[in-house]
Amino acid sequence: MSGNGNAAATAEENSPKMRVIRVGTRKSQLARIQTDSVVATLKASYPGLQFEIIAMSTTGDKILDTALSKIGEKSLFTKELEHALEKNEVDLVVHSLKDLPTVLPPGFTIGAICKRENPHDAVVFHPKFVGKTLETLPEKSVVGTSSLRRAAQLQRKFPHLEFRSIRGNLNTRLRKLDEQQEFSAIILATAGLQRMGWHNRVGQILHPEECMYAVGQGALGVEVRAKDQDILDLVGVLHDPETLLRCIAERAFLRHLEGGCSVPVAVHTAMKDGQLYLTGGVWSLDGSDSIQETMQATIHVPAQHEDGPEDDPQLVGITARNIPRGPQLAAQNLGISLANLLLSKGAKNILDVARQLNDAH
């Protein structure tokens, strides 16, 4: 009898209710805020589980004197976190989706994509230029951005401005803007500013005609071990179906173009009346040469937790077992079709030249 009692006690200790789920994140304040929001949602869904947040620095956090596009290494903000995932030191990792490459290392998958916040870019102005827009900034004003995508589009749109690289986390960039006289304004992701509670610093939100956004911008991705079915089931509740389908289309477009950090590629997606609209573009580094096109596809946005595919093969690095396969494939095909259209119009040449120029500098 006593033996059975011990077995029952052991089973209770090993039951999922007692389990601590370890969540990996970057150390920056924004990353911690984003991770806290994901953990809060998981806690609400699984009140019996405990969650421990483990923060670590990544290569991208450490190399702050070089433009991201020049470092010449993929997975700048993800490699150390993936290493911890691989060694079973954490069970899942919360990322900004735009930091996750469209091809993940073997053994990993994006197990959830959370509801997207505003994906557009924002302009934050130096205190002396508050009330201005990019259009009304004085001639030769210097605007800071760490992104080739932003610089290429904005140089084309605002030729009277000069664009220079600015690195560091959000706090560091804002301090550089406010305390030094080098920059009249800087460009940042609206979602990051909003998550930090800095709505009052948003001086201008850039519309798609001015600057399309990065693939996955404004959404959070939760990376897990691809074979860890328990954790895949656990994080599945975080999937937002519309965000998922938009981001599958965007990531398929980028992957098929073979774009990345070192080339200016941008997108804009919208879901309306059962249609998914995808606009994508590529630019030369100075913005003088560009190709942009829009395509659409009829896609039914499923309700969360309709029964999805059981075999769960990944699409552009994403596993969404609780979302039907048909809409996911339709979104992926839309991204591939748009990429093929741009490639047929000469996108590869623009991107190759951009890559060579970026590598040469």
Rank of each mutant, 00 (worst) to 15 (best):
L244M: 09
S184T: 14
R167I: 08
Q314W: 10
A252H: 01
R195T: 01
N349C: 06
V123F: 04
K227A: 15
Q229C: 14
L234F: 07
P309F: 14
H300C: 13
E250Q: 09
R173I: 01
Q314Y: 01
F125C: 01
E162F: 14
I318G: 07
D65V: 09
A360S: 11
P101I: 10
S141Y: 08
I71T: 09
H239P: 07
G221K: 01
I318M: 08
K27Q: 08
R195G: 04
S69I: 11
Q155T: 11
G107E: 10
S288P: 12
Q217T: 01
P105W: 08
G335L: 01
K176E: 08
L100W: 05
L85N: 01
I110L: 09
V38H: 03
V282M: 08
R156Y: 06
E82H: 03
G221T: 06
P324G: 06
A252V: 15
H126E: 13
L342E: 03
T102N: 11
G107D: 12
G107Q: 14
A67D: 15
L341M: 11
G274K: 08
V301G: 12
G260D: 15
F129N: 01
L315D: 04
G60K: 01
R355K: 05
D228Q: 15
S184R: 13
T102Q: 07
H199S: 13
I291V: 07
Q181N: 06
E182K: 07
L351Q: 15
R195H: 10
L85W: 01
Q275V: 13
Q194S: 04
L76V: 13
A320P: 04
S57G: 09
D61L: 11
K87R: 12
M295A: 12
T35V: 09
S146H: 06
D36A: 09
N340A: 04
G221M: 01
K348F: 11
P327H: 12
P159T: 09
I248G: 01
D273G: 01
D311K: 01
N88E: 08
I205G: 12
G203R: 04
D289R: 09
S288V: 12
K227I: 05
E258N: 01
L278E: 01
G144E: 05
P302V: 14
E293T: 03
T41S: 13
Q181K: 12
I33R: 10
T41V: 05
L342Q: 08
T243L: 01
L81A: 04
R325M: 01
A219P: 01
K128N: 14
K87C: 12
D230R: 13
V23C: 05
Q229Y: 14
V20G: 07
T172A: 13
Q155C: 13
L170D: 01
V237E: 04
F77D: 03
Q155D: 06
P313C: 06
Q217G: 01
T109G: 01
K272G: 01
E250H: 01
S337I: 10
L42H: 01
